[in-house]
Simulated assay, not measured.
Amino acid sequence: MTVTTPRTTMTPLRRRLLVLLAAVLLLAGAGTAVVLHAAGRADRAGQAQPGGPTVTAGRPTLGQKDRLMFVNAAAGPHRGAVASVPAGDPQGRRTAADLTCARFYAAAGTGICLQSNPGVLKQSNRALLLDSELRTVRTFALAGTPSRARVSPSGRFAAWTVFVSGESYSSAFFSTRTSLLDTRTMKLTPSLETFSVVKDGKPYHASDVNFWGVTFAADDDTFYATLNTAGRTHLVRGSLSRRTVTTLAENVECPSLSPDGTRVAYKKRVLSGASLWHEYVLDLRTLRQTPLAERHSVDDQATWLDDRTLAYALPANGRVGSSDLWSVPADGTGTPRLLIAGASSLAPL
């Protein structure tokens, strides 16, 4: 007798169940692959890109001499950290501190670090006053997004600028707030807008006044900054003791005073209505302007390496969200050269 095995007929319900099971298995496999890939990517994130700078953890301090400190923008676990290199070997091995900053500056053993920490409900922005060991002395809440930071040559005064609306100086609508801190008394001036303004020799009052980009002289009283009002920017000289500012020249942004106190480097808007700036140096005695050899648009507050050389940040070629530090002679001669790749916020010690 021949035994015939009954033929199983696949019902529509069973067919749907098999399709669902196959989809679940496929998604599970894809999820595992994604997790493994993410883990591998996380491992690689802790390594610098091939050919990039060597960055090691350490304890750089503000008391070290002949060093350049900056915010490390190179890929890897120390991205965003304050780092240090020898001034004589700026592209050498970097020593990174356990401190991250969006903006940083230091002088005479005093540092200022502006941090921007995204939160679930609200972004937290703060300024950290640092001692020579990069330890936090005081913390100050910021009213907006970090933009500029400076410390006076003596270390007594610090200043910082934030955007309270808009995200850059090229925005159609933006507002800034610049604060001043006496690090000896801890007296904080929350806004430079409380200072009296003398414009073109006359007292000036306007609701649209904005300040940014403070730079200090060596006398612990004189400073320079940008004043913006009525759609125009001005270089102003200020007095901390008298709480006044006076306009000196027009179309000046983000000034940086030379070590000898005779010149100001600044970015000048060269095309009205466009986000295009060129770097210039202004002689404070004659008000003569000298264009520098850098032909790229520089949206930065330059730093003097010495009385002859300026450094500034430019967007890194091909590295999204990164920047490089370049240098150029301050007299308009020469050519720009790469100073430190993957870096910003330079502070020469």
Rank of each mutant, 00 (worst) to 15 (best):
L121M: 06
F104L: 04
L130H: 07
Q115D: 05
V120E: 06
A107S: 11
L99I: 01
L128N: 06
G119A: 01
L128Q: 09
R126A: 09
L121H: 04
S116W: 00
A107N: 12
A102T: 05
T110P: 14
G109V: 08
L128V: 00
G109L: 08
C113G: 05
L99G: 07
E133Y: 09
T100M: 11
T100E: 12
A108Q: 15
A102N: 00
A108W: 15
C101G: 06
R103I: 00
I112P: 00
G109M: 08
G111H: 12
I112F: 05
A127F: 00
L121T: 14
R126H: 12
G109S: 09
P118Y: 04
A127R: 00
S132Q: 15
C101Q: 06
N117T: 13
F104N: 07
G119E: 04
P118A: 09
T110C: 14
L130N: 05
N117V: 11
I112S: 02
Q115A: 13
N125G: 07
R103V: 02
R103L: 04
G119H: 09
C113H: 11
L129Q: 11
G109D: 10
A102V: 02
T100R: 14
L128R: 08
L129E: 14
G111R: 11
L114F: 02
A102F: 01
Q123E: 10
C113K: 09
T110W: 13
L130E: 06
G111Y: 09
T100G: 10
A127C: 00
R103T: 03
R126P: 06
L114Y: 10
G109I: 09
L114C: 06
A102K: 00
G111L: 05
G111T: 12
K122R: 13
L130I: 02
S124L: 10
L130W: 11
S132T: 15
C113Y: 09
Q115R: 09
Q115P: 09
A106Q: 10
N117Q: 13
I112E: 02
G119L: 02
T110E: 13
V120Q: 07
V120G: 03
I112W: 02
F104W: 04
V120F: 03
F104H: 08
K122H: 14
G119N: 08
Q115I: 09
A107E: 12
G119W: 04
A127D: 01
A107P: 01
A106K: 05
I112K: 00
N125C: 04
T110S: 13
A107Q: 12
E133V: 03
Y105C: 03
V120W: 00
F104E: 04
T100P: 04
L129F: 08
E133N: 15
L129N: 12
L129D: 10
L128P: 07
L114V: 08
G111E: 15
A106F: 09
C113R: 11
A108I: 12
L121S: 10
G109C: 07
T110V: 15
G109A: 08
Q123H: 08
